[in-house]
C-alpha cells in the first residue's frame, strides 16, 4: 500500500467536487486519480496488493446518515448507496417483498464484510480474476491497458463465458447486481453536472477493448441510491448461487429470477446471471421464451439453453455452460413454486 491523501466528505453535494485534487497532492509520488472510500472491503484490499494506487481517498462514510437510508413505498425501494449490505439483507420488507435482493446479499461475503460493505460499493466491486490481483502478471488489460490478458491462456476455471472479449474474460464477481438487473433497477448518481438517474443495466460496461473502464461513471460521479420499482414479479423471486463450498465463496454460477405468473402461466419473467459473465448479465431471450408458457422442467431447461446460447468457454470453464443452464432451470423451477 502506498501513501495517499485522506479526506472525509462533508456532504453528498460536496463530495463530487471535493475530488478536485488539492494543491499539495503533487507531493504524493506516483499519484493516480482519487477514489471514494466507503466500506473499503475491495479498495483497501486492492491497495494492499498494489493493484490500485490512488493518490487520494475521499472517505464518504460521513454521508451515511443522509445517503444510507432504505425507504420503502408503493412505488418501490430507494436504497441509499451508503446503506450497509447487512441492513438491506435484513430489512423485513425487502425480505418479504423483494426476496431476490435480500438473498443475493445474504449469500454474499461474510457477516463481517456485509456489516462493512455498502450497497453502492458492492455494485462496483472489482473482479476476482487472479491475473488482475497478482501484479507479478504483467499482462492484464484491466490493470494495465494494452498489456494483454494472461487469463486467456491461463487457469480460467473462474472466468466468464458470456460478454467476454479478446482483451478480457474477467468475471464480474458480485451477487446483488444480478438481483438489481432482474428487477429493472436504476441508479441515482450525483455528478459534476448535477444529479441524474440511469438504468442499472447501463452502469457496467462490457470489457470490449477497454476492460479497464468498468462502468459508465464519469470521474467524480458518486452513486447515491439504487432504485427498485415495485412490480408484480418481485415477490416471486429468488437468488440461486452455486459454488464449490456452501458459504463464503464467489459464485461459479448464479441466477436471479423473478416471475409474474397467472394461473401457472408466465406473464413476465426476469433472469439475470452471475458468476458467468463479465458484467451483471440479463438473459432477455431466455425471459421471452417463457412468456405465455408454464414453468416446467422442459421450458426451464430451454430457458437455460437460450441464456447460454452465445457462451464462449475457455480451456477450464466449459462446465459453466452446463452449470449455468442448469442453474437457470433450477432457479426458475424453484421460483415457480413460490407465492406471488
Amino acid at each position: 500500500m502506498r501513501p495517499f491523501l485522506y479526506d472525509r466528505a462533508a456532504s453528498a453535494d460536496g463530495a463530487p467536487a471535493a475530488l478536485a485534487l488539492p494543491k499539495d497532492a503533487a507531493r504524493i509520488q506516483g499519484r493516480l486519480p482519487a477514489e471514494y472510500l466507503a466500506g473499503g472491503t475491495t479498495l483497501l484490499d486492492l491497495m494492499k496488493l498494489d493493484v490500485m494506487q490512488p493518490g487520494r481517498l475521499v472517505d464518504i462514510t460521513p454521508l451515511e446518515r443522509r445517503e444510507g437510508a432504505i425507504a420503502v413505498s408503493d412505488r418501490g425501494l430507494r436504497l441509499g448507496a451508503l446503506a450497509k449490505m447487512s441492513a438491506a439483507a435484513d430489512h423485513p420488507e425487502i425480505v418479504r417483498s423483494y426476496p431476490v435482493l435480500a438473498q443475493s446479499l445474504t449469500l454474499a461475503a461474510s457477516a463481517q464484510l456485509r456489516n462493512m460493505a455498502t450497497l453502492g460499493g458492492n455494485v462496483l466491486q472489482r473482479t476476482r480474476c487472479n491475473y488482475f490481483r497478482d501484479t507479478a502478471w504483467t499482462a492484464c488489460n484491466k490493470r494495465s491497458p494494452g498489456s494483454g490478458c494472461a487469463a486467456q491462456g491461463g487457469v480460467n476455471r473462474q472466468h466468464a463465458v458470456l460478454g467476454t472479449s479478446a482483451d478480457c474474460i474477467a468475471t464480474y464477481p458480485g451477487d446483488f447486481a444480478q438481483a438489481l438487473m432482474a428487477l429493472d433497477a436504476s441508479v441515482e448518481i450525483a455528478g459534476a453536472t448535477g444529479p441524474r438517474t440511469i438504468p442499472f443495466a447501463s452502469l457496467h460496461r462490457p470489457p470490449g477493448s477497454t476492460p479497464d473502464r468498468e462502468t459508465t461513471l464519469a470521474p467524480g460521479d458518486l452513486i447515491t441510491a439504487l432504485l427498485v420499482p415495485a412490480a408484480p414479479w418481485t415477490r416471486r423471486s429468488l437468488y440461486l448461487k452455486i459454488r464449490d463450498r456452501q458459504s463464503y465463496e464467489f459464485a461459479l454460477a448464479s441466477a436471479a429470477v423473478a416471475l409474474d405468473l397467472q394461473d401457472g402461466v408466465v406473464r413476465q419473467a426476469r433472469i439475470a446471471l452471475g458468476g458467468v459473465a463479465t458484467t451483471p448479465w440479463r438473459a432477455r431471450d431466455a425471459e421471452a421464451s417463457l412468456v405465455g408458457r408454464p414453468v416446467t422442467p422442459e421450458t426451464a431447461a430451454e430457458a437455460g439453453r437460450i441464456a447460454f446460447a452465445g457462451a464462449q468457454p475457455r480451456q477450464h470453464n466449459a462446465y459453466k455452460v452446463a452449470l449455468g443452464r442448469n442453474t437457470v432451470a433450477r432457479a426458475l423451477l424453484q421460483a415457480a413454486t413460490l407465492e406471488g
Partner: peptide
Amino acid sequence: AARYVNANLADYLVPVNAD
C-alpha cells in the same frame, strides 16, 4: 509460468462451518 494463481484464502478453498 509455474506460478500459483490462487494463493489466498478467498480462492484457495477450505471448508467453512456450513460445509
